[in-house]
Structures are given as C-alpha cells and as structure tokens.
C-alpha cells in the first residue's frame, strides 16, 4: 500500500519542506448583487509545512471557509497566489483532498462504494485487488468495518464524517483540507472523532488545514492556530504556536497552565474581534 505514496515523493525537489503550501498576499472579493465588489479576504500570507497540522479559527462569516475552498481550488482567488510545492493552485485536484462539513457522501452508494469511488478515480494505477485492500484498510482505520455495506442514511452523523475522512485519506492526498469536520456532531461524538483523526494523523503525518470555530479543538489537534479577524475584509490577526508534543493526551493538556494561557489568549482575541457589527 505504501508504494503508492512513493510516486508523490518524486516532486520538483527545489521546494522547501517548511513551505509546502505557500499563500502569498491573497485577496478575495465577491461580486455583490448590486454590481459592487465586496472584499472578503485581504492580505493573507500563510505558509504550511509538509507535516504540519494548521487550524484556522474565526467568527462565522469571516471567510475562513472561503480561504479553505481557494486552497482546494473550488473557489478562485482575486489576486495573490497559492502554491503547493511551488506549483500554483488554480483548480481542484486530488493532491488536496477535502473533508466537507456536511459529509457530502453520495447517498446511492454504500460506505464501501463511496470510498471505492474516490480510490477508483484517483489511484488509477492500482489493481482491483490492491484497491479493495486499500478501501478495507481505510474502513478499518475509522472503525467502520461493521457498517461498510450500509447506505449513508442508515448511519449516524459521526459515522458519516468518518466515511468522509476515510474517503479523503484513501486517495493518499498530499494535503488534507477539513471544513469544520466536527461541527455538525454532538459533543461526545466530536471528542471521540477528534481523538481518532489525531491518532491517524500522528501515524501518517501530512499537511492538514482545518477550519474550526472551537478553540479547544484547535489547541488539542493542531501545531499552529491561525486566528482570523472579522469580515468583511478579514485577514490573519495572529498565528499561535501550540507548544505541546504529539501524541497528545487531552487530560494531560488540561492540567498544564500553558493550555489555559493559550486558550484564554485565543478566546480574548476572538472576543476583541467580536462586536464591530453585532
């Protein structure tokens, strides 16, 4: 299974590993209904390393999802540049796989078929047997073996999101993009799934960009936290380093004073950027 990733290593070697994804001076504006341009994102500069887990936090409507969608290629930027390993991103591609907030599973396919569809599309060089193994491996990775032949409307939200994550990971992307992946889940399921995703990431480190509005989630999971100011014309307000080593344990984190310092800092930032129009 691992050989398939070897393909992606033979890349243009001049890129810097710490500059795996490089966003430079990104602006994004939308055409409003009255023909006027409205600026959503301005002067975004961000660099993500090859094995770094980044969270982006901001109030709803600050354009953080738009930023993720630009990186995914689903949305066009107005000016600036986004480069993955030195190559400009201009359209969606399977090197950056997305985990959608609303799961986006195809309801006419079973769990297994949903994952298989992605594998079929992306890893075309694999034999059917290898594909089957890869699919089974990823179903097992997210503990869905028992539900593998169920349809999406027969499983819970947490299970659906696990399928979404397995689908994204099964294509062996260089980068994982997650748009509030745990946002639609209840608190208990969310905690469990965060743990699972983090464990998977800790064993297969890769670049992750996760949108969230949950400070605890961001601290627990990520290496750096990008705090966005409020929209319109949102930008990066601050970038926090999370000083804890992986693998992390939630209970241990909660005992450290650094954790609360970081948490308060982030919350204060968000509070101070709350209110202009509310």
């Amino acid at each position: 299974m691992i050989e398939s990733t070897a393909m992606s290593v033979s890349q243009p070697s001049q890129f810097d590993r710490s500059e795996f994804l490089k966003i430079e001076d990104l602006h994004k504006s939308f055409k409003a209904g009255n023909g006027r341009e409205s600026l959503v994102l301005k002067e975004i500069n961000l660099t993500i390393a090859e094995t770094e887990y980044i969270s982006v936090i901001g109030h709803s409507g600050c354009g953080k999802s738009t930023l993720l969608r630009i990186v995914a290629g689903l949305e066009k930027l107005t000016s600036g540049s986004v480069r993955l390993q030195g190559k400009e991103i201009c359209k969606p591609g399977c090197d950056r796989m997305m985990v959608f907030q609303q799961y986006s599973l195809l309801p006419w396919l079973t769990v297994r078929q949903n994952i298989r569809l992605a594998v079929d599309e992306v890893l075309t060089h694999l034999s059917p047997v290898e594909k089957k193994e890869l699919v089974n491996e990823h179903i097992a990775m997210v503990n869905l073996t028992a539900a593998a032949d169920k349809y999406p409307d027969e499983i819970s939200g947490g299970m659906k999101q696990r399928v979404g994550i397995a689908r994204a990971l099964s294509t062996r992307p260089k980068m994982l993009l997650m748009d509030e992946p745990f946002g639609a889940l209840d608190a208990l399921t969310r905690g469990k799934l965060q743990r699972q995703v983090l464990e998977i990431w800790e064993s297969h480190r890769q670049a992750v960009m996760m949108i969230t509005h949950d400070v605890d989630e961001a601290i627990y999971m990520s290496d750096r936290i990008v705090l966005m100011t409020n929209g319109p014309a949102a930008t990066i307000g601050e970038i926090l380093e999370v000083p804890f080593q992986h693998p992390r344990d939630r209970a241990q984190l909660r005992q450290s004073s650094d954790y609360y310092e970081l948490r308060n800092h982030a919350l204060n930032f968000l509070d101070s950027h709350f209110g202009a129009e509310d």
Partner: peptide, 16 residues
C-alpha cells in the same frame, strides 16, 4: 453542489 464538488476534488473527467 456538494456532490459536484466531490467529483471536482477527485478530478473526474466530465463524462464520468
């Protein structure tokens, strides 16, 4: 739109 975006991210050709 979600389904179409899934297919875009997977780089499906139009006919597929």
């Amino acid at each position: 739109k979600d389904y179409l975006e899934v297919s875009q991210v997977l780089e499906m050709p139009r006919w597929r």
